[in-house]
Structures are given as C-alpha cells and as structure tokens.
Design a protein around this nucleic acid. Structure first.
Lengths: 467, 467
DNA sequence: AAATTTGTCTATTTACATTTC
DNA sequence: GGAAATGTAAATAGACAAATT
C-alpha cells in the first residue's frame, strides 16, 4: 500500500481528528454519524476504503474497521467486500411510522390502519363477555402460553390461513412485539439477518435497537432468489431471515409457492432461522401454505390479529420450533410479563364463536371498495396490490423520488410513505410510495386524497425540487 | 510474570482447549459457561487470574479477557480489579418467577401476586364504560403518550404518591415492560448499571437480555452508601442506577429521605441516569418524596398499576427527563407499538372517578390482615416488612441457606423464593427467603402455608442437606 | 507507602476471504 | 483467470488504573 495514496483518491469523506479526546475509533465513528445525520454525506455515498482512510488519518486499519462496525450496528452504513462501504439509503428518514398526533389537517394514508367500523362488533361482544361470572379472574397475571382453550382458538384461526400445526402457540402483544421478542431471544448484537431489499420498517427499528444488522437478499420478480439467499448464507454469514409471505409490506407481493419451498429447504439445509411474518395472511381468501409448514423446525411463524380483526386487541400468535420454545417464552416473559388476559380471552371467544370471521369478511369487503376507488382515480398509473390488500404500492413516474413525492403530498394534505423508509442496505430504492387505503376515515376522505395525489402525479414535477 | 507460575497456583478451573475448532476466545467462554451450568464451578468460586489462565493455556492475556467478557455479559461471572473474577451467586438459579402452571398442589408464596378480590370492582366499572358510545374507538391503535385526559389521570395518581410533575407521562405495558424499554433506550450492550446487592430479579433478566452488566453498590443499613455509589461511578464506570425506593423487592426496605437526596445529588453531579422503580410506592400510605422530585433531569420514574390496582391492566406510567423523552418514546413504540387503549382508558377512568383509590384501600386492608397472620405464625423469627407490604423477607436461621429452604418448602408444598434468586454480583447473599403474603388464594391457605414453614424453621435443619 | 496483583481498554499485527477489474 | 481491492476477524502487544498485600 503506497504511502499517501489518498492524494490520488477522490476522498468522499475527510474526517478531522486533529483535536479529539475520546478514543480514536469512537471519535471517528461519532464524526461519521454526525456527518451522515447532518446530510454532509448523503444516502448511497461510497466511503473511502478503510485502508485509504487509515492512511489518510495515519491510524491503523483495524481502528477504522472498528469505527465502521459501530456505525454499521446503528444501520448508518452498509459494507460489502470488494465493493466498499456505503451510507445507508434510509439514514436520513425518520423512524416512527404512526400518524403524528398533531396532523389534524392531513389525510392519513401513511400508517396502515385497518378500518374502524368493525370495532363496534367487538364492543358488542365484549359486553356479552363481561357478564360471565368468572370475568374478574382475567385481571390477574397471565402467561405467555395462555390456556388450552385460548391456544385452541388461535390454532383454529391459523387453520383458516391454511396452516395446520400441533405446536401450541405463544402469545405476544401484537406483531411488532412478537418480532422484537423473537429477535431478542434468538440473536445477538452483531448477528446478521437477511430481508427483502424493501421491507417492513419495524424490522429495521427492531434490529437497530438490538444491534442486529440487516442484509438485503437479491431478488428476482419481487422475491428472494435461491442464489441470493445461498450467497448471503455463505458470504454474509446471516443467521436468520425475515420474510412476509403474503401481501409483502410495502410492495404487496405474495410469495410464490416455489419460493416458499425454496426458503424452507435452505433453512433445513443451512440451519438458517426464518421469521415468517404472516401479518397480512389472514386478509387473503385463499392463502398459500406458509413456509413454516415446510420447515416447522426452522421457522418462527407470527400471526397478528391487528390487521385482520382489530389493532386494539394488541395480540399476536407465535408458532415456534420446539427447540426454541423455552427461550422465546423466557424472552417474552422478560419483555411483557404477560399479554393482557382480557384481550386474549376476548380474542379467543371472537374466534371460537365465529365473530372473527364475520369481522374479517367486513374488512375484506371494505378493502375491495376502497381499492376500487384507488383503481378508478389512479387509472393509468402502476399501483401494485390485490383488491383485498389494505395498502397499495404506487410506482412513481421518473420525475419523482419517493421522498420527494412524500414531501409534496404531505404539503398538499396527504400523508404517504416513501420507498426510502422501507429500504435495507445501500441500494437506491425504486421511486414509489405506499398508500394505506383503509386509513382515511371514510370513502369521501379517501377520494379527496386520491384526487390530490393524482394532481401531483400529473403535475410537471418541477416543484419536486422546490423546498 | 514467571513462566509456568501456574504450577504453584491452585487453579480452580482448568479448561481443556486441546481439540477445538471455534476461535479460541469463544471456545474458552463456552467451556466456562458449560462448567458453570454443569455445576463444576459453584457460585462464588474464584477463577484463576486472567494472566495465570493465559499462561496455563499458552494464549494471550487479551484472549482470556475477551472470553471472560462474553461470560460477564451473560451475567455468569463478575470481576473486580485487584480481587479477581468470581462465578455469580445466581448462576444456577432459574430465571422465570411466575407461578409454574403445573403446580396444582403447591401453595404460591413465591410470585408477588396482589389479591384477586378487588378485580370485581374493576369488572363492574368496565361494564359501565362499555356503554359509552365512543368505546369502539378504543380498538384502534394508541400511542405511547396516550391522550391528555389519560395523562392527567396518571398525573393525579402520581400526586397521591407525593410526586408532582409537570412532565406528561408515557405509557408502557406494565413495570417490567417499562424497565426493558428504558434500558433498551438508554443503554448499550456492555454498559454497566448499579443496583442493590439483592434486587428485583426482573432487572437481572432484562439486563441480561440486553447485554447490560449489573454492579452491586455497597450498602449500609439496607441502602446504598454515598461512598459506594461514588466508587462505582468512578471505578466501575456505571452509566445508570436502578433503585426501588419504597418496599424494596425483596428486602422490603424503604429508602430514607437522606439516601434519596444523596442519590439525586450524585446523579446531578455525575450524569448518572437513575431508574426509579416505584412499583410498590402506591401501597404506602405516607410515601416519601421520590428521587425523581430531587433530580427530575436525571431520573426515569416508573409507576405500575399492577400491584396497586390490578395486574390485568398491564399498564405502567413513565416520567422521563425531557431530554430523554423522544428516545424512550421511540423505543417503547418499537417494542409495543402501543399499550392497549382499552386498558389505558379503563385505568384513567378508575383513577379519575376515585375507584382506584377504593381498590387501593381494599388492598391495604387485605395486606394488613395477611401480615397479621404472618406475624402470628412466625412469631420469634425475623420477618422484615411493613404491614402494608404485600411480601415479607424472612431471615433464616443459620442452618439454612435460602436455596436449601426454598427446596425444602417446595417439597413440603409451599413455594417461596430464595435470596439467591435476587442476588447481583458474586457475594453470597444472606440466608433469607421472600414470602408473597397476598399470593395464596385466601387466609386459610396462607395459614396452612405458614404452618408448614414454621415446622420447617423449627426442624433441626439436618434434612436441609438431604436431596 | 510501595510493590504487586489483577482486570480493562485501545491499538496493532497478521491472516484470510471475497469481490472487482 | 489472476492480481488487486476491499472488508472481516482473531490474536497480540502495550499501556493503564485500581485494589490488594
């Protein structure tokens, strides 16, 4: 390595460590973090090679490696051998995806909220349940395993998605809670997990919190390829995989049966642990068999009732391989102590008495109606997504990036979420935004929002670059 | 360092790394972990100094340091400079502290469960609430901040404990959930947090899960000393402190006002972040001002309704310094998305309408009754704890260790928890067990349990050593 | 009070594996 | 296909600071 070779190098980043107090590697990491957050280094920027930086700063190569590792664990940068290190594509986008409370005058199509009307059904049912003389017992502590009758109800629900299992389910407080619990139970800081290049933002924040790194797996036709997956196993040393088989969030893609079998096979062969997030599977009328059914010893299957029945129940079901069950129970206990027994019982009864099914059908019908409006207003544009899916994926004309369009829409009074929010790794995501079609309060509001979006799409896009 | 000095050393642990595949430091850590779990190394054992081990195995000193660090993060060993490294005193005790579901024939005095009767009051109140025409809205998503009216109710409750704050509270799904959220938000793997030498087991499992190390702070008269705390700040580099000011779990100690002020002062001076777990504070009729009131910018205050009102509500309130609020909200959102809005609203109404107060008084009355029975049956023994405290701390005669007594009691049909379950660090804890006085189903069952315990205490203790 | 013991931390050396060109 | 580029990881060296004796 020639001395001072950096002089011939177009150094994209030149940190200044002339006056620092902290240890070198921390000071370098902090400066890198600051420069990314300040926007001095924009998403996708290739950083100088570690050796060049070391040379430039006159420190040891490993000192840079260590500094980069810190930033990597925070999800700020992604590295790949041979190519270099890059600033993450989502380094700048903010993290919370719930409707902001002060957004009174903006129509919500960002957060995926199921419609509100079916909740009246649940209220009616709850009243009935309160007359049970044993109801008060539900205000004691529960357990992550629930009781036999509740577990049976959960199993019934899973059968509706075409998933037959003899494993008793575990309970968590919603899908995200189940994901965090599973990740915390099975992985260590520094471990790597494969995901789609565009995926549910919650897995990103969860991994980030636990120091787990996400690795984007190569795709073809919207799903992971065998080569890509094997490559990541062998070369990126991924220990786990996170997938959404049905109505993938945010791209709406439903995974083919071949891909499901392929992932199951690789999991069995390599020992990869698969987290199968069946968050939207219940919305499908004819769902394909889940990956878990092909590799029950390697797949942690998570089904949430939030999108299919009601978010207020704060409940999800986890089917785990027997060997991992104890560890996951301990971790869930550690995070939650228990799920609200009232909600568990309520949900179990809704299922056992068929009310859940009724609600589900209501949801599907409503989704179809709203999607018809979307198709009507955005006719001519590429808006991916099945009529039963409660969000859609709008591919933007080239004149907009997702972030630009999100900003424009927000100023025009509609909240949508840009592809960048869902991006893993350093690849620039497609120009797209996600539309939550059941989030507006009613059809009239949805139509108003769609009309605004359509106008934006048809504008010349010049003001995409105005502040 | 003399070569082969280990020959003069009574090596307490001689690992065998003759045929290993993994990296050295991992292999050493794994062997240490296995030997501790297999009981080959018992709690309190002093391990050979790192240099001796390195010499013995003919590896570099740092390789041992790294191996020990792995085990330290798992809570298996504790080290202190100058003295050496020791096997943790709780390395063998199991982790889950909920009643085991298959324990039909054993009287529960292990887990601290509040009495069940007040829950009927809550059920009645819930019925009333269900008639509200807006009830269905509670089945949508909530936010970690709740709404203004709910926050106001929480603030009212806190005022009852003598804590006036103008900070709006945050919501978490119970005390443990709040602790995990706070730890995950504010600390990194490898960070250290000070605790009492005997403390709530949940902080141990939470820290363990997040790779955070606990450091026992020196005590005098059952509370932390200023010297001990300053020492740990300076020499153990603790970044946080976990304390239970009222009815400390499991010792029942209530912290003096001087100690509260002292901790607040040190927090202000050194930047230490204090997690104040006010889990039992509501049970006190005249609680002292919390530490948070003396150092609002340094204390994260957690109040749970589980013990004071009902565990089934799965709700806790967090008061945070303004500067940490955003980070904690993000982390709570990441773990829970939201707390059940139904439970938040129910709790808020219970408080606003004074029902919470009624329930609280019922709980206190019941605790007094049960404690009177404890005093009567165990007259002559040292059973620490106020009449309003729902657990007691039984100091055992020297013939029993806590673990021995727990085992004996369990065989005799009573579940109690040994001091070892609560121990932090490598010091051998006092001979004591915790008795959950409101956990048995009724007074008759409590009397039966107390009678059994009394017989055991009066036995010669010889069979303490029988399997 | 000084020397020794002991754990901790950062930076360095060295080897390695993969990707790019 | 081979050389160069590039990131990763383990083991080592050395300095440091606190506690013990």
């Amino acid at each position: 390595m020639p001395v001072n070779s950096f002089e011939e190098y177009p150094m994209s980043w030149k940190p200044d460590i002339s006056n620092i107090t902290a240890p070198l590697y921390i000071a370098i990491a902090e400066q890198l973090e600051q420069d990314i957050k300040d926007g001095k280094l924009s998403p996708g920027t290739k950083l100088p090679p570690q050796r060049e930086l070391a040379d430039f700063l006159d420190v040891n190569l490993s000192t840079i490696t260590r500094a980069f590792k810190l930033c990597g664990q925070k999800g700020l940068i992604y590295a790949s051998i041979g190519s270099g290190t890059f600033v993450s594509s989502d380094a700048a986008t903010n993290k919370i995806l719930l409707p902001t409370s002060n957004s009174a005058h903006i129509i919500e199509m960002g957060s995926v909220l199921p419609e509100n009307h079916a909740n009246e059904e649940i209220t009616r049912y709850m009243k009935k349940m309160l007359n049970d003389p044993n109801f008060s017992k539900l205000f004691q502590y529960g357990r992550p395993e629930g009781n036999a009758w509740q577990t049976e109800a959960a199993t019934k629900l899973l059968e509706k998605i075409g998933f037959q299992t003899d494993q008793p389910v575990l309970l968590a407080a919603g899908g995200q809670n189940a994901i965090v619990g599973t990740l915390a139970a099975l992985f260590q800081p520094g471990d790597r997990i494969g995901t789609d290049p565009i995926t549910y933002a919650g897995i990103k924040t969860a991994a980030n919190m636990l120091g787990i790194q996400l690795v984007a797996i190569q795709q073809r036709n919207g799903e992971m390829t065998k080569e890509g997956l094997l490559y990541a196993c062998k070369n990126e040393h991924i220990k786990g995989l996170y997938v959404i088989p049905d109505f993938h969030n945010p791209t709406t893609h439903t995974m083919s049966i071949e891909a499901r079998k392929m992932i199951a096979e690789i999991a069995r062969q390599t020992g990869l642990l698969v987290i199968e997030d069946a968050i939207y599977s219940l919305l499908k009328e004819q769902p394909l068999a889940p990956i878990a059914s092909y590799a029950p010893n390697k797949v942690i299957y998570i089904a949430s009732v939030s999108k299919a029945i009601s978010p207020g129940l704060r409940l999800s079901f986890i089917v785990t391989p027997t060997s991992l069950r104890k560890k996951i129970i301990e971790t869930l206990y550690n995070i939650n102590i228990s799920v609200s027994p009232v909600m568990v019982e309520l949900t179990a009864r809704l299922i056992q008495d068929g009310v859940a099914q009724t609600i589900l059908e209501k949801h599907r019908l409503y989704a179809k109606q709203q999607n018809a409006l979307v198709n009507q207003y955005l006719y001519g544009y590429t808006v991916l997504g099945d009529e039963a899916c409660i969000f859609r994926w709008l591919i933007l004309p080239n004149k907009f990036t997702g972030v630009q369009f999100e900003l424009l829409a927000s100023k025009a009074g509609v909240q949508v979420y840009a592809a960048e929010r869902f991006a893993v790794g350093n690849a620039k995501p497609v120009n797209a935004v996600r539309l939550a079609v059941t989030a507006p309060e009613n059809s009239a509001q949805l139509e108003q929002a769609l009309s605004i979006l359509k106008d934006l799409l048809e504008s010349d896009g010049d003001y995409a670059f105005v502040d």
